[in-house]
Write a protein that binds this DNA or RNA. Structure first.
Lengths: 187, 187
DNA sequence: AATATACTATACCGTTCTGTATATAAAAAG
DNA sequence: CTTTTTATATACAGAACGGTATAGTATATT
């Protein structure tokens, strides 16, 4: 509802991606968002709570963008998995791409006991399961295996792009994905 | 020379990997290393200098371990690239594996102007070039293309293992790598 | 015995961090 | 017009941060 809450959430999302999570203080967030700490702490009880919400929203936004792309462009189940990396390329090469939230967060919070690390890990797992479902619907036998391989290519390409913008890694990830998918279909 | 300098370097390496770089203060490093800040700042002029040295040493250690494995186990050039992921698996599944320094560092320092980010990026590029050299010596045509794809699988598998120890991702990365390498050889 | 080197111990600098308390202005609702 | 809500402004607490200054100890060399 509140537009101020969204403003804080969006500002934090942007700052976390461009400066890192630990390097971004709440003072900076409220200054950029044009509000005060009191308001921030009214909506988000702790900084950790804010981080968790940022991660959740980022992932939801990405997933619904991808879902929409797949549903409007691909008819047959086999088309969806084949076109998956086309949309991923579109997303990665978009000027607004700033990286994948859960990949960066898991590096900043390496301890597996940490709630932020755990959420990152869960999001990574859920994305892999999403790919597995696509593979399964395309009647691929080892759907989980293919999904894992594709997710490695995906995370590797995102990592490469985070390190160097315009790396072009996604082009080669696409080729590799095509090879793996074709191999899995003809089995 | 100085054993105390090494002690600080090794302690920092360990703490950075297990707690994150930004989350590890110099006070913690000297406390765990059993020395004082004065000594740390004698050997490393700034925390950033220490971080850069830690990254360099970690990468050197990994590279010389891998070089040694390849040189003692693989004779023909084609064997080296084929066995590459066997050794990477050995490294990733080793109990002492704590992640890849440059992958985590680039996430903690996302700004491309930052010296730490730049070093991470350079190390990633050099590792890719190392794989490309292996591919080239095995007479593979598009050596750079294959190297990029293999590095995506590698970084993806490391990422997966950093998120969840014992993920088993490297098994599937190996399979995918074999497929890509065989495809590139028969061309 | 004097000197250089390596290191420790401790206190401190200024800054930044997350988080809170207080007091006030603005606006919406009764 | 008054009450209640919502947000602001600002100051502060308490701890941690990177980094420095000072004073002193232990050991080895000359």
């Amino acid at each position: 509802m509140s537009t101020l809450r969204d403003k804080i959430l969006n500002t934090a999302t942007d700052l976390f991606q461009t400066r890192g999570i630990n390097s971004t203080g709440v003072d900076t967030i409220v200054a950029v968002a044009g509000t005060t700490k009191m308001t921030l702490y009214k909506y988000f009880h702790t900084k950790e709570g804010l981080i968790l919400e940022v991660l959740n929203k980022s992932q939801q936004d990405f997933q619904s963008w991808l879902d929409n792309k797949l549903n409007t462009n691909s008819k047959a189940p086999a088309d969806k998995i084949k076109q998956l990396f086309d949309f991923i390329e579109e997303w990665i090469t978009s000027p607004s791409f700033l990286g994948m939230g859960f990949i960066k967060a898991s590096a900043e919070f390496p301890n597996e006991e940490n709630p932020i690390h755990q959420l990152s890990s869960k999001q990574s797992r859920e994305f892999r399961q999403f790919i597995s479902k696509l593979a399964s619907e395309a009647n691929i036998k080892d759907a989980d295996g293919l999904a894992l391989q594709l997710s490695l290519l995906f995370e590797g390409a995102v990592q490469a792009e985070q390190m160097k913008r315009g790396s072009g890694a996604i082009k080669y990830a696409k080729k590799a994905a095509k090879l793996l998918i074709d191999g899995a279909i003809n089995q």
